[in-house]
Nucleic acid binder design. Structure first.
Length: 446
RNA sequence: GGAGAGUUGGCUGAGUGGUCGAAAGCGUCGCACUCGAAAUGCGAAGUGCCGGCAACGGUACCGAGGGUUCGAAUCCCUCACUCUCCUCCA
């Protein structure tokens, strides 16, 4: 959600930001609507003031028992009975229209985000690890994993395409990955483990900006709730409509949850294998921070995600997304792409974004900045107010989110990177404590 | 699923259709007293929006949204949430 005041103050910058997103300039029409709305509000408030004044006088006249005066005043205000509701209705309508316009616009890219219209404009920032050299032709997981217990046909019988049924050590391995990740984020990266609702209301989906534009990507329940497409929805909305104490920031939350995506519009993409499913597990990392801390927090968060890949010894690269490829709510995003030898390519496994105050405005999440001692900038001499602290105004927080990591895709990466010539898969060392003695997935013929 | 009770400012909690943005207490902040603190006394203090260079003025907000009325925290409707009892259930 955009701040109308920023658009008023600097319409050129706003349009330039939209242009980087590949959108037409809108400041002129927005400002025209804004001016019209404000004129209407001024007019309406004058009517209200008139009415309130008269109503007060009526009350006083009635109190004195002066019925004639009261009746006269009532007649005078009667004219407002038709005009005021009209003004109010028009105001409501214009306000809603302006709100809808602003709510449908994506966040503006940060200054250091590269230009570009699609993924070809993304910039590789760093690369970690060396892809393993195989003495056999590495397979795609979709080809060898079914023999290890990753079963798409069984799932299709009950649920259709884009679902999987995991059996035996394969199911255990996926669970191990999730446990490992959330333990790591909780114990080492300083995130607080949360267990949150998987179904949320409209307001929450609006807050993180899945609504109103992307409803077709979500599943909806019969009672109108939405299945979360990411626990970013549940975690970020934990602070909706809050005024947080300064001392509570930064807030770092993590959760291991299933995610549900309709994958509308991705027909034909990644139809084979476990890359793109309607349901998948993910460890999410959400931060709520002071504005000045957001940039550093994005780096910190991205490192928290990368540390999982490094612990699993999975080669990856860090991409800085270009303006045209970023998600709706983001002002800057790093994607982590893991090496998949079976596909001979890097594939997205995590996305870490700084959303600035974009979601905070939608959720109305603010914090009250602690006052600084007056005169602390000057250092000396000044007293009298020397001990006074000035409470700052409420400010919007900044929010960040990132995957740490997508569990399903990490399973794919482990399978493909740790595959052996005989079709088995060696369990990475860091997962062994979670595997109950299993050290290798071995193919079965059945 | 059935029956009932609630939702008021940072917290507790009054509130009659007519100077109610809202009593009171607690907490917070400032000042006084004190070497300092406690205690005490005095005082201050909500948020959004509109207009204004500003001082300031106007307007809205008593869970949310509608309605009745000249006027709604107060009356009516819808919704959300909380609590109690019953029922059901992992």
């Amino acid at each position: 959600m955009h701040d109308i005041r920023l658009i008023r103050d600097n319409p050129e910058a706003f349009d330039a930001g939209l242009a980087r997103r590949g959108l037409e300039p809108l400041s002129a029409s927005i400002l025209a609507a804004d001016a019209s709305l404000r004129a209407l509000q001024t007019e309406m408030q004058a009517s209200l003031a008139h009415r309130n004044e008269a109503s007060k006088a009526i009350g006083q006249a009635m109190a004195k028992g002066d019925k004639d005066t009261a009746e006269a005043l009532k007649a005078e205000v009667a004219a407002l009975k038709t005009s005021l509701p009209e003004q109010e209705a028009a105001e409501r309508e214009q306000l809603a229209a302006l709100h809808d316009t602003l709510a449908a616009l994506p966040n503006l890219p940060a200054a250091d985000v590269p230009e570009g219209v699609d993924e070809d404009g993304n910039v590789e920032i760093a690369r970690w690890g060396t892809p393993r050299s195989f003495d056999f032709a590495p397979q795609e997981h979709a080809d060898f994993a079914p023999a290890l217990g990753l079963d798409f046909e069984t799932a299709a019988k009950m649920a259709g395409a884009r679902f999987a049924f995991l059996k035996g050590p394969m199911a255990r391995l996926e669970r191990a990955l999730g446990q490992f990740m959330i333990d790591r984020q909780t114990n080492e990266a300083g995130y607080t483990e949360c267990a949150a609702p998987l179904l949320v209301r409209d307001e929450a989906a609006f807050g993180t900006a899945q609504l109103p534009k992307f409803r077709e990507d979500l599943f909806q329940t019969t009672d109108g709730r939405w299945l979360i497409s990411t626990s970013e929805m549940s975690l970020t909305n934990a602070v909706r409509e809050e005024i947080l104490p300064d001392a509570d920031l930064p807030l770092r939350m993590t959760a291991l949850t299933p995610c549900f995506r309709s994958e509308a519009g991705s027909a034909g993409r990644d139809t084979r294998g476990y890359i793109r499913q309607h349901q998948f597990w993910k460890v999410e990392l959400v931060s709520v921070v002071r504005p000045e801390d957001a940039d550093a927090e994005l780096e910190r968060k991205t490192r928290a995600a990368e540390s999982i890949l490094e612990a699993l010894e999975l080669p990856y690269r860090r991409m800085l997304l270009c303006a045209g490829d970023m998600g709706f709510a983001a002002r800057k995003t790093y994607d982590l792409e893991v090496w998949l030898p079976g596909q001979n390519s890097y594939r997205e496994i995590s996305s870490c974004s700084n959303c600035g105050d974009f979601q905070a405005r939608r959720m109305n999440t603010r914090f009250r900045r602690e006052g600084v001692p007056a005169g602390s900038h000057h250092g000396s001499g000044h007293h009298g107010h020397g001990h006074m602290t000035k409470k700052g105004a409420n400010e919007f927080v900044h929010t960040l989110n990132g995957s740490g990591l997508a569990v399903g895709r990490t399973l794919v990466a482990v399978l493909e990177n740790y595959q052996q010539a005989d079709g088995s898969v060696i369990i990475p060392d860091v997962l062994l404590p979670y595997m109950g003695g299993i050290t290798r997935l071995t193919p079965t013929t059945n």
